[in-house]
Every structure is written in C-alpha cells, then in structure tokens.
Design a protein around this nucleic acid. Structure first.
Lengths: 344, 344
DNA sequence: CTGAAAGCGCTTACAG
DNA sequence: CTGAAAGCGCTTACAG
C-alpha cells in the first residue's frame, strides 16, 4: 500500500508538503498542491489512519457498548448513534455486552485500548472497575438509556414515568385491577425505575403491587417466559402482565400461547419499548414507545461535546403510550374498505 | 495515560524488556518479569493498540459491511460474526450500508483506512470501485450471504434452492396455483437467485411465473407494501405472495391488513429468512430459515484463514422450510393443555 | 511556501 | 537475558 513517502517522491515534494495538502493547510503553493493531488490520484493513496491517530492522539472513533444488539430497541439505538456520529465525522465501534458484565468489561477494555475518543455506554450492571476507572480518569463518556448512579457522567435517556402512568390509567379504565410486572435486572436503572414507576402509578388508584406480582426477569425473552409461567401458576393470576422490555413481552406471549391461553382474553399484556413487530403480533401489543432515534442523536451530540472539551449535556426525553389490542381494548372500527377483495 | 516508558522507568528496565514480558517473549528473567508486572499493575498500564498496530502492521480487527442492521437476519449475522471473531482474538467493526451503494463505499473506505486485517462484506450492489480494488490488491476479503460474480473472493452463503422447492411443493399441495414473488434488487445475487429458484420450482409443477407476478422490491418493508398493493390491484391477484426477505414480508402483511383483508384467507404469504417474530405474527409466517449463526461463524473462519495466508474456503449451507400458518395450512391440533385456565 | 527533523508508543533484529 | 536503536506512517513546530 502506497505511503506518504511514495506520494512525496512522485510529486517531487517533501512528505511535509504532502501532509499539508492532505490536511488543507493554507500555506501550500497551487503548483505543489496540484502535483500532490495528481500523485495521490495516480497511486490511489489513502492516508493510514492508524499512523495519523498515533501522531494526533485522536482516532475520530466513538465506542458504543450496549446490552444486547438482538434487542430491536438497541439495534435502532445503535443505528441512530452511527448515523449521527457519521454526520459529525466520527466512526463508531459497537460492543455487544449481551447483558453479561464480563463481556461488557471486555468491550470497554478493548475500546479503551484502541484509544477511542469517547465512550457511549448503556451499562449492564453497576459498572465494571475498568469503566468506572475510565470515567474517573476523564475519558469522555456518556450513559445512554441506562446509567450508574453516583458516577459523574452525563446521561441521555427517556423518562417513562408519564407513559407508565398513562398505561396504568388505561388498564384501570379497561377494568383491570390485578396488575403484574416482569421486571428487568435490579442492577440496571431501567430495571428498577420501571417497577417503581409502575408501583407509584398503581398507588394513585389505590392498587397495590404485591411481591407475587413482581417477576424478576433479565430483559431476555426466556425470562419473560419463565416469569409468566409463574404468574399463570398463581392461585390468583394477574389480569395483566406488563413486561419491562420487548423481549420479555415476546417470552410472555410464548408462555401464554404454550398453555393454550389467549391474549388478551385470558390475560392481558403490555410492554415497555415499542418495535415495528408489535403491530403484527397476535394481538398487536400495547406498548410504551421511547424516542429512540432522538436518544441516539442526543447521546452522540453530548459525547462529541465532551470530546471537544464541552460539559456534555444530560437529556431526558419523554416516552409515550401506544395503545393497541393486547389489553382487551375494544376492536378498532374495522374499516369497511371500499377495496376490491381478492377472489375469495 | 501511562506509556511503556513509564512502566520501564518504574520497573527499572528498558522498554524492550517491558515489551517482551507483555508479549510473552521467552527470554526474560523471572525477576525482570515480576518487576514489570508489578509496575504494570501499579500504573494500570494498558498497551496502546494504535501504536502496536502501526508497528506490527496488523490491527486484529475485521470489518463487516452489511446491507441493513435493522434487518433481524443481518443483526443475527453480525452478532454471530462478532462472537466467532472474539473467540479467535479479533474485534469487528460493523458498517451499515442501509442498502445504499454510497454508504457501502463510505464504510469500505473507512475500514480500509483503518487498516483492518480483513473484510467481510454482503454487497449491496455490483460492488464499489473501492471494494473491487481492495479485492484485487489482495486485501483479505470474503463475501457473506450476497456476493459479486466474477470477483475472486471466497463466498459463504446459504443455498435456498432446496428450501424454495419444498416451499413450492408445500404451496402446491395446499392447492395454490397463482404464486407471486416480491423480489429483492436485481443488483444483488440473493435478489436474483431467489426469483430464479422460485421460477424453476414452479416450472416443475408446470406453473409459470408471469411478469405481473414478479414485483420489484428492495429488501425493505416499504417496497413489500407497495408491491403487495400492486398485486392486490391486479384483475387476477395471486393466491400466494412469497417475499424474498423478512422485511418485505412485514410490508406485505401491512398492505394486506390495510385493505381489511386477511392472511391467509384472502391471500397467503411466505417469506425468505426466518426470525423469532414470525412465530408471533398474525398469522405465524411460513418461512425459509437460513442457518444464520453457522453462516457467521463460517465466514469469520474463512476470513481469518485468508488473513493468515490460507486460501479461505467458500461454503454453502442449505436453508430449510419452516411451515406455519400463513399459507392456509390446517390449524395445528390445539393442544387441549391440561392446564388451569386463568379465572374467566 | 517549503523541508529537515522530532516524536507519537510500540516491536524487534542486532550486539553484547 | 538485556538494552540501544531503528522504524512503522504520519503531523507539526521550527528555520529558512
């Protein structure tokens, strides 16, 4: 692969001059510039980003450590992060922690070894030593979605309290009184907050959230399945199950179906995190939607601000309730579409 | 951040010795080793991967350029790629082309600038000049899922012909005779192959695939919606729509529902690519499943083999038909589960 | 405007 | 077993 020396030789200038034209430094003669550009073109030269990074001490790369890529919520978040980063001239390297603290640590370490300019993380647990260390040492960092209390790092997240209140009001109006929740891991902020918000909202209606109605999940489908089975085995099963994320809702759907029961007739279901598939499930799932794209964008902007020496603003965006059919809502007016039906 | 010099100073040895213990070079005295290790621990030293890469001319990083991260098939592929790469001591940087040739080119360029050791790509189109160039120049490379004919690069993919034949047999047995397909972009191998396989399989039953029954999609949901609307507008609409990927199937589901019609009563639906959500859609979708995990693993192994100077073996794994309910299949025996039903 | 030179943080022959 | 030194491919004061 051609190096800057080759370009210099071919253009008949020094490597310093080549570097200058490549970096748009003003003091280069027009003549030198054209010769260099010609050589670059002829050689198909591309600067070695590794060498440049070593020299400039910046990689123009952001790290993103998320809990689970297979979760559509995080997939969308990752996509939005990459988009915004690209717009700002950064690349992003994604580390998938798979809800495993050890993997999270592995990725944080690898990313730091590569000297990324900044780190975006949605912590899986209370935070690995490596990560805490990085935060303390001043590595530009921001938390997205989940965060670690007590660590002085901006956090970009969505506030689900209002939407959870709306959900509970909705369920109450539908006549449901025994409401259960499949919680996320207590080690995560979102795991705890969603339970708290739910309990608080129930309280406003004089409803309690007994321990038997709090199932401990881990944000993965399997745990939703397991917890739901437990709920169904209760002498007095809940009328509604609220899954704290979309994957656990999927698992709940499985469990209900496996028993030959139906949602919402036998038991209602609602989920935190909305995804395109919820429109197409049987039945369509009532869910709380986060402004995922905006979250990703805001997180990148906050991080880049930190990278460039700014304070990096925390932001909290409201989530909202999306009502569909999984809680016993009345059927929507079946549009008597004036459409030709296919031959029977 | 501590550098190798700091470690050397603290341990009272030269940087060469530090480097040797870090790289497990045999000729280091036990004494030197322990002093170095102690210094490393005390300083929290971590080698700068950028500097190491510049020196060794290897980054231990693989690039993966995929067409669309939001497509669950590619998400799973990416995940499996990262897993296998990690097991082999490599990191992976993912570039999301979003089915856009210009974005694909951007990522290939960026990845190459970063001097990744090898490139895994699922080309969005006929191949950008940059990519073709890299292939020719000898950058270790392998195609996954999609490939570019005529480019001498190993390809790891799944062969859907058998499964498509099984699908057509299945549809034929169900009494369907007018079968249509929502094709992927003609610029992609998978876009073309799936149509060919479908046509061939139909031929075996003396069935034709008229042009009106070939809708041009682009692997995204919207195109599935649009094409399906076109099918429904036909004087003689098809009895079955086969979507060449899962996202277009989603779009088709939308379109059918938007007209107040039902799958499979009004029109049947099948999809290429199986995903967890298809179990939960209304109705569950009959699909062709690729061995995605294995594909990812095989692709990484082939690429790492190339990186290490090997030939990099092409592999083709068979896909298989997964029958569910979207084609008018008889209802499964409703398991009269011996399970307590929830109150009411 | 231009070039020689130093230096980023490592690794690795080469001598000893 | 150990260290001094060269060099990976760049960028950037410093002189001119």
């Amino acid at each position: 692969m051609a190096s800057i020396k080759d370009v210099a030789a071919r253009a008949g200038v020094s490597v310093a001059t080549v570097s200058r034209v490549l970096n748009d430094h003003p003091s280069v003669s027009a003549d030198a510039r054209t010769r260099v550009l010609a050589a670059v073109g002829a050689l198909g030269y591309r600067p070695n980003a590794v060498a440049r990074s070593l020299r400039t001490d910046q990689t123009r790369t952001l790290g993103l450590v998320i809990s689970d890529v297979m979760n559509p919520y995080f997939t969308e978040l990752a996509r939005s992060v990459e988009e915004e980063a690209r717009a700002l001239g950064y690349s992003v390297i994604i580390g998938n922690a798979d809800e495993r603290p050890d993997l999270q640590d592995h990725h944080v370490t690898t990313l730091l070894d590569r000297r990324i300019d900044g780190l975006l993380v949605s912590p899986t647990d209370g935070g690995s030593p490596r990560m805490l260390d990085a935060a303390r040492t001043g590595t530009p960092m921001v938390f997205v979605d989940r965060w670690i209390p007590g660590v002085d790092v901006p956090v970009v997240r969505s506030d689900g309290r209002g939407a959870v209140r709306d959900l509970v009001a909705h369920l109450h109006a539908l006549g449901h009184r025994r409401l259960a929740i499949i919680a996320g891991p207590a080690a995560t902020t979102t795991g705890r907050e969603r339970v708290d918000a739910f309990r608080e909202a129930l309280g406003a209606y004089g409803l309690a959230l007994p321990d038997a109605y709090i199932g401990q999940g881990d944000f993965q489908a399997d745990s939703g399945r397991r917890v739901t089975e437990g709920f169904l085995d209760l002498t007095e099963p809940p009328e509604v199950v609220f899954a704290a994320d979309n994957l656990m809702a999927l698992g709940a759907l499985d469990a209900v179906r496996a028993r030959g029961l139906r949602v919402p007739d036998d038991i209602a279901l609602a989920a935190f995190d909305d995804i395109p598939w919820f429109v197409h499930t049987d039945p369509p799932v009532t869910a709380i939607a986060q402004p995922t794209r905006e979250l990703g964008r805001a997180a990148v902007r906050a991080l880049v601000d930190r990278v460039e020496g700014g304070p990096g603003e925390s932001v909290s965006l409201p989530a909202r309730l999306v009502v569909r059919r999984s809680c016993g809502e009345p059927a929507p007016p079946q549009s008597p579409s004036p459409v030709r039906r296919s031959t029977s």
